[in-house]
Simulated scan of single mutants.
Amino acid sequence: MSMVQEQIDVDVPLHTAYNQWTQFEEFPHFMEGVEQVTQLSERHNHWTTKVAGVTREFDTEIVDQLPDERIAWRTTGGEVRQMGVVTFHRLDAEHTTVRLAIDFEPEGVAEKAADAMGMVDRRVKGDLRRFKSFIEERGVEQGGWRGRITPG
């Protein structure tokens, strides 16, 4: 498994950043290579990605979600093996730090080479920069789910 950890400060209140992140179907607007996310239930999403011309589909399960603090997930099916957590940290009334940590299993020679060259780290960093632009340009979230999902 490989680990990527990145963070970014966004110029919106904590609840705004968190609420927007719960809108999984909006991820293609700021995540490179994400073609579509379909929310199947409060816990489950289906993803379609296309990276370097290769399309992959997989499912994720949210295993822990605490409003304004964290969302943790893992893959449950398909061609991708990963788990991760995004956390939200209040800096002040109008600023939030978003931290993203992902453990993933690169598949095949190309993915292993991309991981070794730091391409995955750069992609995640770019996704966070695009999230920052996405939410700051709007200034408000496009919705939000404030439910609690507990581990186990």
Rank of each mutant, 00 (worst) to 15 (best):
E57S: 06
K125A: 15
G118P: 01
G33F: 08
A17W: 01
K112N: 10
Q20V: 00
A101K: 12
D64P: 02
P28Q: 05
Q39E: 13
V4P: 03
V124T: 09
M117V: 07
H46F: 14
T55L: 09
E69W: 00
P106A: 08
V80G: 00
E79Y: 07
A17M: 07
V109A: 14
I8T: 02
G118N: 05
A93D: 15
E107D: 15
D121A: 12
E57W: 00
E42W: 09
R148H: 15
A101G: 12
A114R: 05
F30Q: 06
L91P: 00
N19L: 06
Q5A: 11
M119L: 14
S41T: 08
K125S: 14
A110V: 14
P28V: 01
F88G: 00
T76G: 04
F24Q: 10
W145A: 06
Q23G: 04
Q36H: 13
E25Y: 05
R81G: 03
W145G: 02
T48D: 06
E105H: 10
W47M: 07
D127H: 10
V140G: 09
I149H: 04
A93E: 15
R99V: 09
D127E: 11
S2K: 08
V34L: 09
E137P: 04
A116M: 13
G118R: 06
P67C: 06
G78R: 01
P13I: 02
M3R: 15
Q142S: 13
P67K: 02
V124G: 03
F58T: 02
T60K: 04
H15R: 13
